[in-house]
Computed example of a mutant assay.
Amino acid sequence: MQRIYEPEHLHEGELLLGMLASEGIQAHLVGRDLLGAVGHLPVSGLLGIVVDDEQVERALALISAYNAALPVDGDEPDSIPDVLVC
């Protein structure tokens, strides 16, 4: 298994796990249990997404596409620009 990505927060990690699972990639979010110790541990680098070695390239491509995604015109509220409405 390889650590391929460090999500900014738990919600992003969970979102990416779901996205990868929907594409048939089994991934794990490591460090989730360490979040309760914030204040005693470094703030960054606690969370990491890990996948099997043979799924690394595909998982990285999907996460890159996720990070490059832009809102579609008309899908954002006027009061909060650059926010997607799901």
Rank of each mutant, 00 (worst) to 15 (best):
L47D: 08
A65W: 00
L60R: 05
H28T: 14
S64G: 15
H40Q: 13
A59Q: 10
L20F: 08
P77D: 13
P71L: 05
G74R: 09
V56M: 10
G48N: 08
P71N: 12
Q26R: 15
G24Q: 04
G24Y: 04
A65E: 04
G31A: 11
E12Y: 12
L46K: 09
L20P: 01
R58T: 06
P7H: 11
L17I: 12
P42T: 14
D52I: 08
L35K: 02
H9W: 04
E23K: 00
S22Y: 07
L15K: 15
H9S: 09
G36W: 03
D75Q: 13
L16W: 00
L46D: 07
G18S: 04
V51D: 02
V43H: 11
G24T: 00
D33H: 13
G48Y: 01
I63Q: 01
S64V: 05
P7W: 04
E54P: 06
L34D: 06
P7C: 09
H28W: 15
D53V: 03
L35M: 13
P71K: 03
A59S: 11
G74Q: 10
V72I: 11
L10R: 10
D75F: 06
D33L: 06
L29K: 02
L70R: 15
E8T: 07
S44A: 14
H11K: 15
L35D: 01
G13I: 07
D53L: 04
V50P: 01
E57R: 14
D75V: 02
L16A: 00
L20N: 03
I49V: 15
D52S: 13
A68R: 05
I25F: 01
N67L: 07
G48L: 02
M19E: 10
D75A: 14
A61G: 11
G36N: 03
H9I: 02
G45Y: 04
D75M: 14
A27V: 02
A65G: 03
E8I: 09
G45E: 09
L29N: 08
G36E: 03
E8D: 09
G36V: 02
L10M: 12
D73R: 12
G45F: 08
I63Y: 01
S22V: 08
I49Q: 07
H11E: 15
Q26H: 07
A27D: 04
D73L: 05
I63M: 10
D52K: 13
E54S: 13
A65T: 05
E23G: 00
D52M: 09
G39H: 05
G13W: 10
N67A: 13
V38Y: 06
R32G: 01
G48R: 13
A61R: 11
I63E: 00
D52H: 10
G13M: 07
L29C: 09
E23I: 00
H40A: 07
P71I: 09
A37L: 11
A59C: 09
D52A: 14
E76P: 03
E76R: 13
L29M: 11
E57G: 07
R58G: 04
Q26P: 00
E12D: 14
V50M: 08
A69R: 10
H28S: 15
G31T: 10
I25L: 07
A61C: 08
H40P: 00
E57W: 03
L35S: 05
L60W: 00
H40R: 07
